[in-house]
Amino acid sequence: MMTKSYIDLHMHSMYSDDGEYTPTQLVDMCHEAGVKIMAIADHNWVKANEEAKKHADELGMTYIPAIEIDCTYKGVNLHVLGYGIDNQEVFNQLGEDIEKQEIACSMKKLELTNALGFDLKKEQLDTLSTNGVYTGEMFGEALLNDSRYEAHELLKPYRQGGERSDNPYVNFYWDYYAQGKPCYTEIHFPTLEETIQLIHQHGGVALLAHPGNNLKGQFELFDEMVALGLDGVECFSSYHTTETNEYFYNKAKELNVLYTCGSDFHGKTKPSIHLGENGCLNPQEIEDCLKAHHLI
């Protein structure tokens, strides 16, 4: 278990397809977990921010409006966090465009999944989806809870005691539905440059989320991104090893950019990830950094 921080700037509400809780519930959960400075960064939506900020204010907590935008750079799919943004509808328009593409790709995902040796039905996924989007996490959940596949070899790593059992649903996503994997379906995302510009136009700062995960070892790309206008990096993440945390912390100091910490909490899709647990050992330093960039 990671050391707890009183700052957690990356979590997801029910407005993310793979999130579970309402914004109000997340604020209450952060309060109970000792998190004092928080941000809900839903995938391509800003629907949670107004409700969450209102309740955080009532509890005497600090809330930073946020979003996590899917984008691409040099053929690599990335997640970029926007902090301090306004609540303009342009962000939700982006979410609607991506959601339409994801709905269109969902049946293709089902076809590719069944090609792995399953006979999953659309109706099984409809019980997990509220909007017609079938995520990789949903496929993992449906298959792992299907009695027909209790002994299926492909699913063994995700069952209790298996090497991918810590977060079985999201690990199934990373292994089969992420970029370059067998069930990947391509979505047209904005470019990194367009994403940075959009965030800046709406009063925010743009940071690369969990780079140890997204950059796939191409850490040198981060320097290029900063040259393009990226404002910082989520150097402390539940996804990172201690070495990766240290690399991006030192890189942020070297380049004099903003650095933050986030658990990337989702709820049931990532059961081993807890609010406030992100590898940050000195939250006061993060708080000072946020103040220096006028985010709090």
Rank of each mutant, 00 (worst) to 15 (best):
D223A: 12
E246K: 13
H43E: 09
Y63W: 04
K268H: 13
A209V: 10
E220N: 13
K216W: 07
N87D: 09
K109G: 08
I64G: 02
G95I: 01
I69M: 13
H274I: 03
Q218W: 00
L275H: 04
A52E: 02
A48C: 07
I85S: 00
F222T: 03
T62E: 03
Y6H: 10
Y184L: 03
M2N: 04
F265M: 08
L221H: 09
D97L: 08
Q160S: 13
N49F: 02
V27Y: 03
H202M: 06
L281M: 11
K4I: 11
P23D: 12
L81K: 07
S129T: 11
A206N: 03
M11K: 08
L221S: 02
K268P: 00
T22N: 12
G140E: 05
Y134H: 10
E51F: 06
F189Y: 15
D42L: 08
A66E: 01
C183P: 03
L116N: 12
N278P: 06
V133S: 09
C235E: 04
T24L: 10
A33M: 08
A48T: 06
S237G: 08
E153M: 09
G232M: 01
I273T: 09
Y249N: 09
T191E: 06
A52K: 07
M38W: 02
E102C: 11
S129E: 12
T185N: 00
P283A: 05
L207G: 02
K251V: 06
A292G: 14
Q179P: 00
L154C: 01
L143E: 12
